[in-house]
Simulated scan of single mutants.
Amino acid sequence: MKKIYIIFLLLASLGMLWSCQEDEQVVLKHPDSFVLNVPKYASGIYDLKNMETIEFTTSQPDYGFTAVANYSVEISLTEDFAKSDTLPGTYTSAKFNVQAADIALALMGLYGIVDENEFPTEPFPLYVRLISVLNSNNDGAVKSNVIMLPRVKSYFALDPMVMPEEMYIIGNVAGNWSWDGATTMIPIWGTPGKFWSIQYLGQTGDGANAEIKFNTVKEWDGNEFGFSGTAINESGTADPGASDSGGNIGIGNPGWYIVVVTTTINGREYEYAVDFFPPHVHLQGPTAGGNWDTTDEIYRFAIPDLSLGADADFVSPPFTNDGEIRASIKLPGQEWWHTEFLVFDGVFVPRGTGDDQERVSGKAGQRLYINFTEFTGKIQ
């Protein structure tokens, strides 16, 4: 009987406990704010370039129960946070460290400065507050008080602009508006951001004139450029009859051209110039009578007739001597070898930005054939 009585008491106690738990409901409070503490060394200078982190401490918002809050850090150059930015990352403890580099990057956007020379060199006040939420649904969202770090010294934190290493031509002839078939332009040795290509810009099969556009990647990413905003043929010596064709560079005078793209950097923007030159290709060195840096017409390749279309060979004059074969185009302000090329096992290989190429020899009377569309060639 004693054991039965004890079991009865235990069951009764559990029932009362369950009843009490059901009566206690968890209610989420919505506090107006919570406290972000002023850092211990706030009166000093925060030199973001020469420090790794800034430590912050806070007290958790009063949600009415113990919960894990997620804090994000928001900064502004004004106390009213009229323009602000939220730093990357969230924190779940009451003491955490914020990366100084993240603050510096956010300040670039807040200042909106693209010229490094305009960035402030003297310390300035920075305003900070926290935003607390309980989950991904932003339940319990509440902002802390605003604190001021009176003297923050930042720096121009954007990565330096670098010249593009690749450039592509697309058009109704070059690639038929498909980036998969776009032409890869050839970088010019010793001149970052400058590229060349020999292009067939004749009419399409239905008689339409050629149109072209460019980009540094093989995709429509909004950075492609054509006629608008581009310096067109200010230095070129051939007249393609260029015009604005729906934003593309329309070719009014069908033909073969050396197309050159030159990139310059202005602040945080790329600027482009597109120039057109006659499609003159020359032998150099032993097979050109021992002449170097020559543009003599005697050593100039024959230009394919437009009726043959894009898939046609440029053909050199007969080699004057036995010896190594060298060939190039010649651009103003460039050495001939900055734009030289050879053929290896049937493949057209430009020097580009690389080292001196391996040697290929030929016999007097042979010719060099180059297909600039297919990047093929032969010696025979």
Rank of each mutant, 00 (worst) to 15 (best):
A157H: 03
D180K: 13
I169K: 06
A157Y: 07
V162F: 09
Y155R: 05
D180W: 03
W179F: 05
V152I: 04
V162P: 01
M167D: 14
G181L: 06
W177I: 05
M161P: 02
G171W: 06
N176S: 09
A157K: 04
N172R: 10
P160V: 13
V173R: 10
I169R: 07
L158W: 01
K153P: 02
M167F: 09
W179R: 01
L158A: 11
W179A: 02
V152K: 00
I169D: 06
V173H: 04
I170S: 11
F156E: 01
N176H: 03
K153F: 00
I169Q: 11
R151T: 11
V162W: 02
I169M: 14
S154T: 13
A157Q: 08
M161S: 05
Y168T: 10
D180Q: 14
W177S: 09
D159E: 10
G175H: 07
F156I: 06
N172P: 08
W179I: 03
Y155K: 05
Y155I: 06
I169Y: 09
N176K: 07
G171L: 12
I169F: 07
K153T: 03
A157G: 08
K153V: 01
R151P: 00
D180T: 08
P160A: 12
E165H: 13
K153M: 10
S154C: 04
W179P: 02
E165M: 15
D159L: 09
W179H: 02
K153R: 05
R151E: 12
G171E: 02
P160E: 14
D159P: 00
A174W: 10
I170M: 10
W177E: 08
V162K: 15
G175V: 12
M163H: 06
V162D: 12
D180V: 13
M161W: 00
D159F: 01
Y168P: 02
Y155G: 07
P160L: 10
S154N: 03
N172A: 12
Y168D: 08
P150K: 06
E165G: 15
V173L: 12
W179K: 01
P164W: 11
W177R: 07
V162E: 15
N172C: 11
L158P: 01
P164A: 13
V162L: 14
V152R: 00
S154I: 05
Y168F: 15
W179D: 03
Y168G: 07
F156C: 03
N176I: 03
Y168L: 09
V162M: 14
S178W: 01
A174N: 15
M161Q: 11
M163F: 14
W179Y: 02
G171P: 04
I169P: 08
P150W: 03
M161H: 04
R151N: 14
G181Y: 11
K153A: 02
V152M: 00
E166V: 14
M163G: 03
N176A: 13
M167R: 12
E166G: 09
S154W: 08
M167S: 15
A157S: 14
V173P: 02
V152T: 10
P164H: 11
M167C: 15
R151D: 12
S178C: 03
Y155C: 05
Y155L: 04
I170H: 01
P160S: 13
I169G: 09
G171I: 07
D180E: 13
G171Q: 05
G175S: 06
M167V: 12
